[in-house]
Nucleic acid binder design. Structure first.
Lengths: 126, 126
DNA sequence: CTAACTGTATTATAACGCATAATACAGTTA
DNA sequence: TAACTGTATTATGCGTTATAATACAGTTAG
């Protein structure tokens, strides 16, 4: 269900948070759903339990996950709303990147084409 | 001419490379123009000379700068072309980010609006 | 030629983030 | 009770970033 690349330049715990957020947005993980336990997931990914917990901790603070000590870790009821808020905050970075690419000579049309491709891809099952 | 934030999460040498690339794209630095010497710039920015050289080294490998030992460091003749190539390579990341934002519920129109804003900003003197 | 500049290279050190390892404690549940 | 759950702690190793102190070679103005 989860995949990790230990050799990537992005930290493992960030790869994990990104994947979980993605699965929630895709609806694969729905509010109330239980996640693998810290120990199980760490074993499955061949990763240290602390690393998994660090990822989960990030998602608690973002309101995506909710933990119940002794029972487990679950998708928060309002996870989607929180993730949409996070998405809004990323719009600034998107705008800056667009500006940078325009400055580098990339045409406005090419950027819009890129959005179209991403949009088409989003509609598919992937 | 250059500004550095030592407290930022992005490394100093990356801040430097980004600024120099930007100045070249804006035409402030033109092919053949000399850059401040490693020692002068490191002194001006209150930064270690090695850090400045690391930034310059990056730009050598990207074909943006050309060094002449004993004389100094200059903007490469084909700096813009190299930077445009770099820009093309960043299009993939742009597309991925767009896909991510669409998944988070950001509308296609909002993304295009962001591009329009970036485009308008690019036309200005800044 | 000398002095002062230029880029370049080397070694050592310190700080920080990432990840691991080994435990330990408390709550839940079959 | 036993086996699970999340959580917390301390220690260690590693790579990147940045600094510091040098040293060497090429260029140039005096």
């Amino acid at each position: 269900m989860f995949q990790i690349d230990p050799m990537a330049r992005t930290p493992i715990y960030e790869q994990l948070t990104a994947q979980i957020e993605r699965l929630v947005l895709l609806g694969v993980l729905q509010p109330g759903d239980a996640l693998p336990s810290v120990r199980n997931l760490s074993c499955e990914l061949a990763v240290n339990p602390n690393t998994v917990q660090k990822a989960f901790n990030e998602l608690y603070q973002r309101g995506v996950l909710a933990a119940v000590p002794g029972r487990g870790c679950f998708v928060a009821p309002d996870a989607r709303e929180h993730l949409q808020t996070v998405g809004r905050e990323k719009l600034d970075g998107f705008r800056e990147l667009a500006h940078e690419l325009l400055l580098a000579g990339i045409s406005k049309k090419d950027l819009i084409d890129a959005i179209d491709q991403a949009d088409k891809k989003e509609g598919e099952a992937e």
